[in-house]
Amino acid sequence: MAATGGVRTACVTGGNGYIASALVKMLLQRGYAVKTTVRNPDDRQKNSHLMELQALGPLQILSADLDDEGSFDDAVAGCDYAFLVAAPVNLTSEDPERDQIEPSVRGTLNVMRSCAKAGTVRRVVLTSAASSVCIRPLEGDGHELDEESWSDLDWVAAEKPPSWGYVVSKVLSEKVALRFAQEHGLSLAIACPVLTVGASPAPKVYTSVPASLSMLSGDEAALAMLKGIEKSFGGVPVVDLDDLCRAEVFLAEAEAAASGRYICSSFVTTVVEIARFLADKYPQYTVNIGQDSGGELLEKPRVKLSSAKLVKQGFEFRYKTLDAVYQDVVEYGKALGILPY
């Protein structure tokens, strides 16, 4: 499935996931031939939504594992672009070093090696996370962080904030990818998305969508996650899934100057502001902000993550308000059964 006759070919790793399946769908709709990887292509329960996407265009579902060196060679072979979306997420591990950090770094290098070996890949787009940018001690308000900022790993290792292994894994994975790309002459763009919400072909979702709907669903664990994001990030930065996928395709197709890191954040809000918006917009739901909020919630964001670099390249966000984002995600939440009606 090499790029022939003018058809561009893309590989998307971890294709049955929330972001990756939406990206696969978008690429097919744009006329790409797509190869995507999952651990077990024969698992119909996990891959049925991917199989349905085959109606949109040429989509191959291949087997690959981040822990298995060389297993991505076939998937990347002949591709113009490689989107590295698959990554281990193990937020509750007793041993984040073993279960989150080492597998992330190893898996990133594994796919990067396959990209170098292919010899056809014009650009690699790595999906990281904004937690690689802003998890650090910040006193006071009014901070604006850009791609020059890195999370402070010494502080993270000492303080061990929630999901600290995930933060470390993102920083180290980005750094090994950047180093590998430089050493092997690969063009690499890194997308650092914030809280990503919106409808995806994926029939099961974790973290961001349940967190964004937690005040409507009454899911206390998901609400704790949303509050944890505000505490760690100094606000709740949001990007719609459609905007993120468009940004990743934009970064793949853009000229050589698009290499490097890119924060993907459409706007920043707070838990309190989301609660007020939801109470007004969806009066049929009881908006639950939790009993233990006290004075811990912010009235206004303390930190802004700037997407100026992405916008300067010519990208435009479409979903710039809570209203625009939630229209999509509330319907998706109903379809998934996260919201009862």
Rank of each mutant, 00 (worst) to 15 (best):
G107V: 15
R179F: 03
F72N: 07
M215I: 08
L339D: 09
K160F: 05
A221V: 08
G5V: 04
A211Y: 00
S266W: 01
S163Y: 11
G140A: 04
M1C: 06
A118S: 15
D146P: 00
L213E: 05
A308G: 12
V325R: 03
L339A: 14
T13H: 04
S265F: 01
A157Q: 02
V209N: 13
A189K: 07
M1A: 13
E174D: 15
E144K: 06
D280M: 05
V168L: 12
A129C: 08
L339R: 15
F277G: 06
L56Q: 09
A64C: 08
Y319E: 13
V125D: 09
E230L: 10
D280Y: 03
A252R: 15
T108Y: 02
A202S: 14
G14R: 08
E255F: 03
G235C: 03
G333L: 04
L322Y: 03
F315G: 12
A64T: 10
L172F: 09
T36F: 13
K170R: 09
L322W: 11
K281N: 05
G165P: 00
V156C: 00
R98C: 03
P103L: 14
S128Q: 06
E94D: 14
V24E: 11
V271H: 01
R246C: 06
A55L: 13
S187A: 13
C264P: 08
L109M: 14
L336S: 11
A247S: 15
K175E: 15
C79W: 04
S132I: 00
V24A: 15
S173W: 00
T120R: 05
G107Y: 07
S93Y: 09
Y262M: 01
Y319C: 05
D292N: 12
V236D: 05
A22D: 03
A181K: 04
A202H: 07
D328A: 13
P103F: 10
R179K: 15
L186V: 14
L297Q: 08
G14W: 07
A118G: 04
A222N: 11
N47T: 15
A75T: 06
L28T: 10
L50Q: 06
Y285F: 12
V171Y: 01
L244N: 10
E331H: 14
L278V: 05
V7L: 04
E248L: 14
V124G: 10
M215F: 14
A324K: 11
E331L: 14
T9Y: 07
A256V: 05
L297Y: 12
W164V: 00
L126G: 04
V209K: 12
A130H: 02
R113E: 10
L297R: 12
R246N: 11
S149E: 07
G314V: 07
Y81D: 03
K46N: 03
A22Y: 04
E248V: 09
L91H: 10
I101A: 02
S151D: 00
Q60E: 15
D146E: 01
A211Q: 00
T321C: 08
M112R: 02
A181M: 10
E69W: 12
K175T: 09
M112A: 09
T269I: 09
R302H: 15
V171N: 02
Y81I: 10
V111E: 04
G17W: 08
P301C: 01
V76G: 06
G337D: 10
